[in-house]
């Protein structure tokens, strides 16, 4: 009986620590091996087409939505799903389109059938408005506002979500534990829990595209130019021009989140 309770506990602690260290080390090595395997594949499969190169100096991106142009075709929503492997399920979206309908009494109706991914033209979608005297109606597309003061980053208990130098909020998928605190914290409903990866997901402004000098996919496919992306510091960019020449507002300015998605022609009904 050479083992006392004290020495057993000591040895057990050492063994447990050893196992934990080995486990952490193994997962780290596995991660390294994975990234080493994936990187060349992705580089090889990039399109060979020349992409318009933005100037290499540091940027601080901004996004402009012109609600006076949007036609509610939903191409942006579909393109986002395609580009970013967002689940087809219409409950999970990085961007979506809302339609506001205001009647004679000033009552506002808002709908976003399947997040707008199939457009708004079908009869079932419109039948509810047939007996309403519509005074005005318009579309507003929504996406992550990439706030200057992001509440989601503040609340993340494991530091998995962070803001990049150029102003984009990203989620580190290997760190996210899927606690949904950030989803609760976002006042714009821009986050969701990816049902397959089980991590928080959100719009990245197509970080892989903008860092290659391309436009985000939703901007690329918008047929009417209702979505604009760029660096306001560049006076020739579409966003700088739009911000300069239009009456601009942001969503929920009173919350102090300082959104970097700016809206043209936003109505007071839009929240």
């Amino acid at each position: 009986m050479g083992i006392t309770r004290r020495s057993f506990l000591r040895r057990a602690a050492v063994v447990l620590a050893g196992v934990a260290a080995a486990g952490a080390g193994w997962s780290y090595l596995k991660g390294l091996a994975q990234s080493a395997n994936e990187a060349p594949d992705q580089a090889a499969s990039l399109p060979s087409a020349p992409v318009q190169q933005r100037t290499p100096q540091p940027h601080h991106w901004a996004f402009v939505v012109d609600t006076t142009k949007c036609i509610g075709c939903g191409k942006c929503v579909a393109a986002c799903k395609e580009e970013n492997n967002v689940p087809e399920d219409p409950h999970f979206n990085r961007t979506w389109v809302e339609r506001y309908v205001i009647d004679e009494q000033g009552e506002a109706y808002v709908d976003s059938p399947d997040a707008g991914v199939h457009g708004f033209e079908s009869w079932p979608v419109n039948s509810k408005y047939q007996n309403i005297q519509v005074v005005k109606s318009f579309f507003v597309s929504k996406l992550c506002n990439q706030c200057e003061n992001p509440p989601c980053v503040q609340v993340c208990p494991v530091g998995a979500t962070y803001k990049t130098e150029d102003g984009v909020i990203l989620v580190n998928r290997s760190r996210c534990i899927g606690c949904r605190y950030c989803i609760q914290a976002c006042p714009y409903g821009a986050r969701f829990l990816d049902p397959n990866l089980r991590v928080a997901d959100k719009c990245t402004w197509c970080y892989h595209r903008i860092s290659k000098g391309m436009d985000p996919a939703c901007v690329e496919v918008c047929p009417v130019g209702a979505r604009m992306f760029g660096d306001p510091a560049d006076p020739d960019s579409a966003v700088a021009k739009a911000l300069r020449e239009n009456r601009i507002s942001v969503l929920k300015p009173n919350l102090g989140t300082r959104p970097q998605v700016f809206y043209i022609g936003l109505d007071q009904e839009v929240r």
């Binding site: 994936e38 060979s48 580190n172």
Partner: peptide, 23 residues
């Protein structure tokens, strides 16, 4: 945040789907 730069690179490295009209 020690692995943030690594994660940014991972996001950047994702594959582009929409090739753009230039192509």
């Amino acid at each position: 945040h020690a692995n943030v730069p690594q994660d940014i690179e991972a996001w950047k490295a994702r594959q582009v789907q929409y090739a753009g009209p230039a192509s």
